[in-house]
């Protein structure tokens, strides 16, 4: 599908930023995500000028951390989301964010193309499945991700269709472990 092609192109762009400091590739990723990051920050309680500053910062971080992106474990959207979320905790909530240890010294330099493709496809299926959820449940998930729900307000059984994407990520983790041996 075109969405899939778009997603794979975004992966390619991040790898171009990593390998060639490619500004045109950066501009592509920027056009797609910078306005979304800004909107996300505003929805999460930031004012417009702070959201602008943070969004610039998030996109600059993407540039500097391009070598840490692992397309067998996350889509570009997911990766950008985690950078934006961490910036929000830092700037708006003014807290530290304890992060799990990384498994290794970073992603493999040449990720397997089939693995990348499958992870992107699974991410896409998840997007599709989320869009088919009842409005009420969708609203609740949105609220949770924009920081409006506490953990005790989130039900233990979220009812989210996470099965396949979870097993893809699990597989990618196992491969990394294996590569380390």
């Amino acid at each position: 599908s075109t969405k899939e092609q778009e997603d794979l192109r975004l992966v390619e762009c991040v790898l171009l930023i990593r390998d060639a400091q490619d500004k045109a590739a950066f501009a592509e990723v920027f056009r797609r995500f910078a306005p979304r990051v800004k909107a996300y920050l505003i929805k999460s309680g930031s004012d417009a000028s702070m959201a602008e500053e943070c969004a610039q910062d998030v996109m600059a971080t993407l540039w500097h951390k391009a070598h840490l992106f692992d397309p067998t474990r996350a889509s570009v959207s997911t990766w950008v989301f985690t950078i934006a979320r961490n910036r929000r905790i830092d700037m708006i909530r003014k807290q530290r964010r304890p992060e799990p240890d990384e498994l290794t010294w970073g992603p493999e330099p040449e990720p397997n193309a089939a693995d990348v493709m499958e992870l992107q496809q699974e991410s896409n299926r998840l997007v599709q499945a989320l869009s088919e959820l009842p409005d009420k449940q969708r609203d609740l998930i949105q609220k949770a991700y924009f920081g409006d729900l506490t953990h005790s307000e989130i039900a233990d059984e979220t009812g989210l269709p996470l099965g396949t994407i979870k097993s893809r990520i699990r597989l990618a983790l196992e491969k990394l472990r294996h590569a380390m041996k």
Binding site: A27, F30, F33, A34, P35, R36, V37, K38, A39, Y40, I42, K43, A48, E52, A55, Q56, M59, R73, A74, S75, S77, T78, W79, V80, F81, T82, A84, R85, P100, S123, L126, V127, L130, S131, I141, Q142, Y145, F146, L160, L162, I165, K166, S167, I169, R170, L173
Partner: peptide, 26 residues
């Protein structure tokens, strides 16, 4: 760790889906 990856993917989907109105200075 894998389950967290899946929940972060939901965050990615929410970000993809957010309505945008304002540009950011490239």
């Amino acid at each position: 760790r894998a389950r967290l990856g899946a929940f972060e993917a939901v965050g990615g989907a929410m970000l993809d889906d957010v309505a945008t109105s304002q540009d950011v200075d490239l």
